[in-house]
Design a protein around this nucleic acid. Structure first.
Lengths: 205, 205
DNA sequence: GGTTATCGAGACTGCTAGTCTTGTCAAGCG
DNA sequence: CGCTTGACAAGACTAGCAGTCTCGATAACC
């Protein structure tokens, strides 16, 4: 059971001691180890002990820089994940929305990010601190989508009384629901169908 | 910290010993205690120890009848929750859907069920066994909704190539998303807007 | 050159799921 | 009647994990 993992990253004793200065190499090793374990474990929780062992650091070193396990995990994910939020502006709501949704679905397909995100979500269910951190991570994207919809409404592509927040939640609702349960596809076809029906459903009369 | 709870249900020593026969009173006491704790704890996990103590039974008695904590919790919820799935049939898809969604939203508003369901979901994130049990619980409702949509499509109220599963997931996606995060309302107005835009979005041409 | 902050390692606390133990009690069987 | 047996309440125990604390080593800083 103790040797099932590829075992660390070789770095344990290699890394030079930096005395009273912060050891940036250790910082990186922790993030790398966290991301690696997050990506490998499909669903099963990632422990701090495992991260520390894989990074070749003491647990105290982890807790010196991050307040909780959740913080480490989220940091590891955002560190690598493309932080750039899609903000397509093709001039037409339907195509903007198609692009946005497709990009969102696509980003979640890359297996490394996917299993990391899945694990992170599961952990967030128990860790309020992490849940809060994830809220702000997700908030950025929600805001971008809302802006995109708002532009469309101003151009008259959506009815003036359209509930934009509801549309945002329909998009992310479907996304998370399928992403977490995995009972239906999240491909480009679905993205287009969803975008089209959302626009039609709230089109100006 | 040990006396914050109303403390048990008085029954501990009151309940008569049934010797070699199963004690149905204990069975009920466990379910009642589980539901009560589930309803009281908003978010914070419910422990088996707490259930056993509140029911005045030994932990072994709990595990004699249920395989895991999750099984007890789900059993407690389904035992009380209205198991009847809404299946309105008004003759028109738009009104059927409005009624179905409104009923779903409404059922989740009753505080007892709501916090129980929320806690249960959080636990399911960590307990695969419970997650599986919940799938079948939820599956019944998904099937009912899909049937409702299918009827509408057959009546020509939806385009023939409509992706019914995507609509189902939009409904439950929005529901769970808002239910768990609580950032937006789940009232009748939202139910109607959602139903209307879904029908319009996939209406036959 | 002494102080000080970081480091790796790992012991330790506290919490919880699930198992095992013990002594008790009544039902069923002879 | 009296012994066996299964369920029961209580709680000790194991195992796993988050987060804290301790310790000896090391190098920066004054």
């Amino acid at each position: 059971m103790s040797d099932t993992e590829p075992q660390a990253e070789q770095a344990p004793s290699t890394r030079p001691h930096t005395g009273r200065r912060r050891n940036e190499a250790a910082h990186r090793a922790i993030l790398d180890a966290a991301l690696k374990l997050l990506a490998e474990s499909d669903g099963t929780p990632v422990t701090i002990d495992a991260i520390a062992r894989a990074a070749g650091v003491g647990k105290q070193t982890v807790y010196r820089w991050w307040p909780s396990k959740g913080a480490v995990l989220l940091d590891a994910l955002t560190d690598r994940a493309d932080q750039d939020v899609p903000g397509p502006d093709t001039g037409a709501l339907r195509t903007d929305l198609r692009a946005f949704i497709a990009a969102t679905f696509d980003a979640a397909q890359h297996s490394t990010t996917a299993s990391a995100l899945r694990t992170l979500t599961r952990e967030a269910a128990r860790d309020p601190h992490l849940a809060e951190l994830m809220q702000s991570f997700v908030g950025t994207r929600r805001t971008a989508l809302r802006g995109l919809l708002s532009r469309g409404r101003e151009r008259g592509e959506l009815a003036g009384d359209t509930d934009l927040d509801l549309i945002v939640d329909q998009v992310y609702g479907v996304f998370w629901y399928r992403f977490l349960l995995g009972h239906g596809p999240l491909d480009e076809t679905v993205a287009e169908r969803l975008a089209d029906s959302l626009v039609r459903g709230s089109a100006a009369v």
